[in-house]
Amino acid sequence: MRRRSLGNAAAPLAAVIIIIVLMSIAMLVAGTSPLDGFSALIAGSLGGRSQIGETLVATSALLFPSLGIALAFRAGLFNIGAEGQLLVGALLAGAFGGSVTLPPFLAIIIMLALGAIGGGLWGAIAGWMKAKLRANEIISTLMLNFVAQYVTLWLVTQWLMGPAAIGAETAWLPNTYWLPTLIPHTRLSIGILIAIAIAVLLQFLFTRTVLGYELRAAGEAPEAARRNGINLPRLTWLSLTLSGAIAGIGGATIVAGELHRFNTQLSPGYGYVAIAVALVGDLDPLKVCVASFFFGILEAGGLAMQASAQVPKDTIHVIEGIIILVLAARRYVAQRSERVEAGSL
């Protein structure tokens, strides 16, 4: 008598198929043959070293916030503040890297650490609000995105503006502070390796550690967790802090790896797209890596698709929005019906 037709494993695959179908329709509406559209998309994302480099740059930028979101979601917390967490982490890294003279290796380590601290702090605020004030984390993390946007703009224009800066941005990092390039003649830095390492660590956290076990239990069955010695308020701020820290490291790698300075407009919405990525990746760190690569292909290939097949790249963002809506709603409904379903055996 159970009515759920799609198992958990089938959902991401269904999402991918829906994306492809919707994109085909969008291409037809734009007056382009899907064949042309998809071949432009694939050629533009995987058709050469430069293309693959750009795809992986987008993959890396999405992977950090997606992993952070996956961590929070697994703990039952809908953190949609990855955008703000990423921005604050990037600001601390950029402000530090653009103004301090240190041995390069040390500077890079400190920049990444500051990214984690900035993002973590931003997540911790929402965590504290949830644990102490019972503020809904969906609202608070979303609001904190806007706070982050304006606070960083204010800080940069008031104090942190680089000497030769054009636009609201900090000074450029010296070349020695740049993250090493992973694929020569592309923009791809070793930041993506850090992201993958974090994914592996998260997998380890979830499967091997007591903390990861408690996080998952709190996410799956908060009442059972509470009654079995799990301190929910502590886990709430801890997981939002960790979640923010991961997104913040992502911000720092964008600064140190690709942009080489902090710019208030450094993210075109990675923190929001990452929600879709995390859901398509089924909140499983390793699957989230694959999903990030898939969305990286869409991001990078979407440009080529627009440029050579005249399909607006924004269709991809529309479709990403639909995916967030469908998968998030599905997850929400599943959680709510859990109580009803509990015991229907």
Partner: peptide, 27 residues
């Protein structure tokens, strides 16, 4: 404690038997 409502208070239904055997004893 053997709680009254095994579904909500006692077990994590999406966890395996091994994982549930640890709940409350993880520390």
């Amino acid at each position: 404690v053997i709680p009254q409502d095994r579904h909500v208070e006692g077990l994590v239904l999406n966890f395996s038997i091994v994982e549930n055997a640890v709940l409350g004893r993880q520390n």
